[in-house]
Design a protein around this nucleic acid. Sequence first.
DNA 1: ATGGCATATCCTATATGA
Length: 269
Amino acid sequence: MKIATFNVNGVKTRLAHLLRWLEKEQPDVACLQELKALDEGFPADAIRAAGYGALWKGQRSWNGVAILARGQEPVEIRRALPGDEADEQSRYLEAAVDGLVVGCLYLPNGNPQPGPKFEYKLAWFERLIAHAATLVDSEHPVLLCGDYNVVPTDADIYNPRSWRKDALLQPESRACWERLLAQGWTDAIRQLHPDAPVYTFWDYFRQHWQRNAGLRIDHLLLNRKLAPGLRAAGVDTWVRGEEKASDHAPTWVEVDLRAPAARKRPRKS
DNA sequence: ATGGCATATCCTATATGA
């Protein structure tokens, strides 16, 4: 089973890119962020025609997340991150597909920092950590994926020098990331590619794509039940090289849901 | 310190993103 996360930077503008990618890579589940469209503007018909069922949560101009499932309808679990009823931003969706629980998230960028946007980022991160704590030891396989807007370490960016003051590299942001992983989550890309740099985002400025000056900010985290089934992980970089591409590339994992989970007690022989 | 580019909307301007 292949599950991908893709910040499309405008689902209407990027529809042709999205459809080409779905056709070529055939992910079983695709989590999208930055729809930048209202619910009624989501191109559900075209996506259905491509063979995917979908859940989506839109918002005017900004944010917006969706979960696509090939040949079936994702079963909705929740449409918001718990913990703040007043939070109006469309940044979280959770669904079940073939017994896999998938959380699709778009963590706030947080720039400029310091300031209210950075405070919102950290508060949202705290809510994510609290919710993730209820999932990490679930008897069900769980994947939390999306645009986390965090560069975990300096090895996850081409050169941290000009980004030192950016919200994505702040010690507070990284501390939240570390606390999340410490619950017992597996960072799929880091697990399978511990040495070579892997990037998922290249900004539109200064020919960053042409220079491969990227950042790793799109992540897929596996809970304890799912982690033993991790088989492969990667980035579909060819999508970033297309004309008028999103500044993010789809990032994915392949998992075997039938793999036995790690046992808490020794197996009887 | 700024800007470089891209997207969406309240569009000869402004807010947001990372």
